[in-house]
Write a protein that binds this DNA or RNA. Structure first.
Lengths: 326, 326
DNA sequence: ATTACTTAGGTAATCGTTTACCTTTATCAT
DNA sequence: ATGATAAAGGTAAACGATTACCTAAGTAAT
């Protein structure tokens, strides 16, 4: 069922049908309009967006590349993105990069072939500018900032301040031996969080002890292993974690070791993913406005697409949410 | 940069370039092939999949409609789907229905306009056949079975047996007073799980007591509330939960009430979502092969698309995984 | 009566591929 | 020398919309 067939049934030209369907009907009589619309309805006509896209050079589709939707942080990001996109008339193609530059590059290629109007990229750990051959594709970098040339937007939080606040909070709560468990990946945010931790210690005249730092990746297992390793040689009374998954792993290990939280050791996370309020004890953490970050990314991307803005950097605020783990 | 421009540079026709790019080059000399390929590479030509789709009537894109990616069950499903799709050369458009028939219908319309090759639908709670106007679109129903006419595939598990096994296990572990907390939604699987619970009781000559059943929805809060409500009037020593989220909420409530798990009350879940192994105590549950269900859905859908099979129903097996909550 | 504008709609090129069908030249068996 | 076949590549229609530009009739002002 095409526009041409509808046109024949209504005894008008396909141009007329197209105009009516797109609301460009100021020079179409109401009678004709009604007649066409009725036929469209009766025949269950569904317009062919592919043909439309070919002509108009716009697909109303966005590509989103994240490491892994199964990770609660990214699934919330994805949800924020999809909701905002849907609200603005866009669909989203979902891509999981598994933090692999190779998959990321492949997806960028595919998304360009599919003529998405723009791409939201949560960069993989090793991605560098030159691996991203983009042909002037509107793009916003979300959560993870990387070096990249050209007109790209950025939505980030102040990771250093967040980690600083977390550690400072632990100090205020009376901790004297604070460990840090996080990821050793090379994305900027990871480094910033480590810096924030160190700065908080230094400012309070505590020494930075590399033996109290365990870096691996952003997973529950890292938190679990980190606690086991760190407590072999140290007496910690506070642990600042690079993200909530790590904190959850840390809590699990501490629970198993019958170490009381928060009485003996206080634990603080980063992100405030959905599940964090449900662990035992509920996790005190540095909240990122994850869902909103997704929304903001879409808004910025669409404004770049529609040429209303040039890529800028938007820094969203983190907040400390107090629960029972401290 | 189009195929025509490449053709001009190489002094061949666009047909030749197209043939080379699509591997239909049995009658193209190696010299020409190389020359064209080099130009394609040098100019960074990216093919226009939209134009291709218009001609070939296939987009290599699948639509997936799930209630909510932020729900761990569905995010794992989504991941399985995306991985399998990517492996078979397809992209996926992600849609969150929030269990609303209205959103679901809207997405189905959009997906058809975008000419996806097929749709994987995890149906919303109220969706019924006639609300789904589809124009002969290949489709597979995933996880939730609904009545629908036409040629659709189905990937499900035996929910009744799963819930039966769970409850039976509790009985074997010595429980005499087993409650059931689940969702009251109208999808078939919810009813099946309730039936499985009841059947296990009946078979063991235990009476089904409606006061020990709390039905609301598949959320952590339901588990939490359910325990509070059920323990007001009952002395339970076992709780069979409609899914893991509910079980996690139940465990949280029990922990707060200082009731020992599994000594005083045993808890069993359903699904085996990722997080379940990390709660305290780790959750014993009926494992659904979630990721594989996503994969299987893609395989079945693509085989329907390629006309290699007609819609059939595939029932995957659940297994009981023992952890410390029982 | 002429000009100008508005209303209502039609014509046909165009977007970038794919592909059925055609042409030309070379090779080869008879 | 002839016909058949293979090799190499070209021509142009088609996919289904959109849209710049055109036409024609009616109306209104001068």
């Amino acid at each position: 069922m095409t526009i041409k067939e509808i046109a024949e049934m209504a005894n008008v030209s396909s141009a007329t049908v197209s105009k009516i369907l797109n609301g460009k009907d100021q020079y179409i009589s109401e009678a004709t309009r009604q007649r066409v619309l009725e036929i469209v309805e009766r025949e269950g006509y569904i317009s062919n967006a592919i043909a439309k896209s070919l002509k108009t050079k716009s697909t109303s589709t966005l590509g989103i590349i994240i490491p892994d939707v199964m990770n609660l942080f990214f699934s919330e990001l994805a949800r924020g993105i999809e909701d905002a996109a849907e609200g603005m008339g866009y669909s989203v193609i979902l891509c999981n990069s598994d933090n692999k530059t190779s998959k990321e590059e492949k997806y960028i290629q595919v998304l360009q072939e599919k003529m998405v109007d723009g791409i939201i990229l949560t960069a993989s750990e090793q991605s560098v500018s030159n691996s991203l051959k983009r042909r002037n594709m509107p793009m916003v970098l979300l959560d993870r900032d990387i070096l990249i040339e050209g007109n790209v937007g950025r939505i980030v939080v102040d990771n250093k301040k967040g980690a600083y606040d977390a550690t400072k909070y632990l100090i205020e709560k009376g901790c004297n031996n604070i460990g840090f468990i996080s990821s050793d990946n090379v994305v900027k945010s990871s480094g910033e969080r480590l810096k924030g931790y160190k700065q908080a210690l230094t400012e309070s005249n505590m020494e930075v002890d590399e033996n109290k730092i365990y870096l691996h990746n952003y997973s529950i297992d890292t938190g679990y292993e980190g606690v086991k390793k760190l407590l072999e040689n140290n007496k910690l009374d506070g642990i600042s974690c690079g993200n909530d998954l790590i904190a959850i792993g840390a809590i699990k290990a501490l629970n198993e070791m019958k170490i009381k939280i928060p009485e003996e050791v206080k634990v603080i996370g980063f992100d405030d993913i959905q599940i964090s309020q449900y662990v035992e004890p509920p996790l005190t953490t540095i909240k990122q406005p994850i869902y909103e970050m997704g929304e903001e990314a879409v808004k910025m991307l669409i404004s770049i697409i529609e040429n209303k803005s040039v890529g800028e950097t938007k820094v969203l605020k983190t907040t400390l949410v107090e629960r029972r783990s401290c």
